[in-house]
Amino acid sequence: MKSSFHDLSNRSIANLKQACKTTAHPHGNLSLEFPNKLYNQVTQLQAKDHIVFILRTLKNVMRLYHGKYEKADCDQKKLQIFILDIHRQIAELERCETEIVVSEVNKKITKKMEMHFKSLISHLKHTEYSANGWKDVAGMILQHISRLDVLAINTKQDLSL
């Protein structure tokens, strides 16, 4: 993983914070907990599994923002830049992923993460993609991007050894 991934991650975090002013709104009305357990499980796997996990989680983020975010009470230009940065991170990781065989454990963790993101989509549908619904989700997405960044840094160090 190149250091540009980390730069894009920092930019995406900054842009989402600025766009949606989520620093004071962690994920207010969500009854859904952050999946710390999944992140802890994936850290026990090999570095190649981290790459796949990061990639698939970022793809879930992109699916979430693939539609109806215009109702979000956010700076739409900053939000577009955030989405573009996530897309660039995905493209970078896809170059690494082509030679990786995914472990069964990683498949199970990834499936559980997909369920987590489906719950976020359900929350948006339930709130009719309202500005508050998007703010709730943006707070959760910030946590994801931050955790993925830490995982990517540790993965890069593991691959360098």
Rank of each mutant, 00 (worst) to 15 (best):
I109H: 01
Q41M: 11
H87T: 13
L142D: 09
A14H: 07
T98L: 06
K135D: 12
K108P: 01
H66R: 13
K21R: 08
S4K: 01
L58G: 10
T43C: 05
S146E: 06
E94P: 09
F34S: 01
K108R: 04
N36K: 12
R56I: 00
A47V: 04
D49S: 01
R95Y: 12
V42Y: 00
T98K: 12
R11I: 11
R63A: 12
K71E: 05
I86W: 01
G139W: 11
Q44H: 00
D136K: 05
L16K: 03
D149G: 03
D75I: 04
S9T: 06
M115P: 02
D158M: 15
S3D: 05
N29H: 14
E70F: 01
L38F: 06
R147E: 08
L8T: 02
F117D: 05
L45I: 07
T43R: 11
I90R: 12
D158G: 03
L64N: 11
Q80N: 13
A24M: 00
Y39D: 02
K111Q: 14
L79S: 03
F5Q: 08
Y39N: 03
K78S: 11
N60Q: 09
Q76H: 14
W134N: 07
M115S: 14
I83M: 14
K77R: 14
I83E: 13
S31D: 05
D75M: 05
L58A: 03
L93E: 07
T23D: 09
K78H: 11
V102A: 06
H66W: 11
I121G: 06
A72T: 02
K156Q: 06
R63Q: 11
R63S: 15
T57C: 09
Q89K: 04
M113Q: 07
Q76W: 12
A72E: 06
L55P: 08
K111F: 08
E97V: 06
I86H: 02
C96L: 14
I145C: 07
L124E: 09
I51A: 13
V61I: 05
G28I: 06
D158V: 10
L93P: 11
H144V: 07
E97T: 06
I54L: 00
E99M: 00
T23F: 09
H116M: 00
K118Q: 14
E94N: 13
L93H: 12
Q18Y: 02
E99H: 03
M62V: 13
L55Y: 00
Q143F: 06
N132M: 10
S146M: 02
S3H: 02
K78Y: 07
Q46C: 11
I13A: 04
F117R: 09
H6T: 15
K78Q: 13
I83H: 09
M1I: 03
K108C: 02
V42T: 07
K108W: 01
P35D: 06
Q157A: 14
V102I: 14
R147K: 13
K21W: 03
I13M: 11
V52D: 12
K135I: 08
L58K: 14
E114I: 06
L124G: 07
K125P: 08
Q76K: 14
H25S: 03
I81H: 12
A138C: 12
V52R: 09
D75P: 02
A152Q: 01
H27E: 07
E114D: 13
F53T: 01
E114S: 11
A152S: 04
A47R: 03
S119D: 15
